[in-house]
């Protein structure tokens, strides 16, 4: 069954606290994500950790806002700026951080609180499915 692409995309904006990685986001975040990919090589990880600002200078197509968010490890901001979590994983893995540690920083909870929430069944979808319908 063919879906209307405009309706298909519009529905994504109705989900609370969620940025679906659409092509619009992918285009915006192209260089952030390609930068993150460069950290799959050990020699690049070493250069990045040794001097993060100098390493970022090698990525002239990234905006200053994107660079600042990377330096601050502000993952929530990076998602707004077109970053994708699987790409950004190379940044937090280079810092020796797990998905759980990095993801928890976006929730306003401490790592410990977030980990405990997951151990007691996770976050309920109740009220978080739709902004408009509030269910």
């Amino acid at each position: 069954m063919k879906q209307n692409i405009h309706e298909y995309l519009a529905e994504f904006d109705d989900i609370p606290g969620t940025r679906v990685y659409t092509t619009a986001r992918a285009r915006k975040g192209y260089w952030v994500n390609q930068f993150a990919m460069s950290l799959m090589k050990d020699e690049n990880r070493k250069r990045w950790l040794a001097d993060e600002k100098a390493y970022l200078d090698e990525w002239p197509n990234m905006t200053q806002e994107q660079k600042d968010a990377l330096l601050a490890r502000d993952y929530d901001k990076l998602l707004d700026l077109g970053g994708n979590i699987y790409f950004l994983a190379k940044v937090f893995s280079t810092d020796g951080k797990s998905y759980l540690q990095a993801v928890s920083t976006m929730t306003g909870m401490s790592v410990e609180e977030y980990r405990n929430m997951m151990l007691s069944g996770g976050r309920s979808p109740e009220g978080l499915r739709s902004k408009k319908k509030g269910y």
């Binding site: 989900i15 606290g17 940025r19 929530d76 993801v103 929730t107 069944g121 309920s124 979808p125």
Partner: peptide, 15 residues
């Protein structure tokens, strides 16, 4: 299965 790795809704589980 259910998981969300981003934003304020991160950690969503729908058993």
């Amino acid at each position: 299965m259910s998981h969300q790795l981003q934003g304020t809704r991160a950690g969503l589980i729908n058993a």
